[in-house]
Simulated scan of single mutants.
Amino acid sequence: MIIAAILVCEAAALLAVAGWFLLGLITSTPMSLGGAIFMLVLLVLLAGWLLAVGHFFFRGYRWTRSAALVFQFFVAVIAIPALTAGVIWLGLLLLVPAVIMVHQLFTRPVVAYTSRTSDGTPML
């Protein structure tokens, strides 16, 4: 499923950012060590959460649609200021998958896939 693949790719990107952040933390002195460690832990936890959402979305759990939607809104909150600041490549790199994901989350097959029950009857 495309949505699960995009979620896993976003999680991998977050892990890459966490690695880059860790490298910067090792090679330079941060203004606040506690704040830098908190940011690193937050990035790793968010990547783990996205991996879990992608896994459970692939399995068809209902709650994953809302979790994926909220994350895409957070991505858009970062992408739009990047676009307006003139960092077009970063803004588009963030915004295009988010827009595709939001569109796909509301298509009929995705809603049907995530609204099924174990006996095959749809639920509200």
Rank of each mutant, 00 (worst) to 15 (best):
M1C: 02
M1K: 02
I3A: 05
A5R: 14
I6S: 00
L7Y: 00
V8L: 07
E10M: 14
A11V: 09
V17K: 13
G19E: 14
W20H: 13
F21G: 04
F21S: 03
S28G: 01
T29G: 01
T29W: 03
M31P: 08
G35H: 04
G35Q: 05
A36V: 06
I37F: 09
F38H: 05
F38Q: 03
F38L: 14
M39R: 02
L40H: 06
L43Q: 03
W49Q: 06
L50S: 03
L50D: 01
A52M: 15
G54Y: 03
F58H: 12
G60V: 12
G60N: 05
G60A: 05
R62W: 15
W63S: 10
T64F: 01
T64E: 03
R65E: 00
S66D: 12
S66Q: 14
S66F: 12
A67W: 07
V70M: 13
V70Y: 06
F71Y: 14
V75A: 11
A79H: 09
I80E: 03
I80P: 06
P81L: 08
L83M: 15
T84K: 08
I88C: 03
W89F: 10
L90P: 07
L90Y: 10
G91W: 05
G91A: 04
G91I: 11
L93A: 10
L95D: 08
P97L: 04
V99H: 01
I100F: 00
Q104W: 10
F106G: 09
T107L: 03
A112D: 11
T114L: 02
R116K: 08
T117F: 04
D119R: 13
T121K: 11
L124T: 13
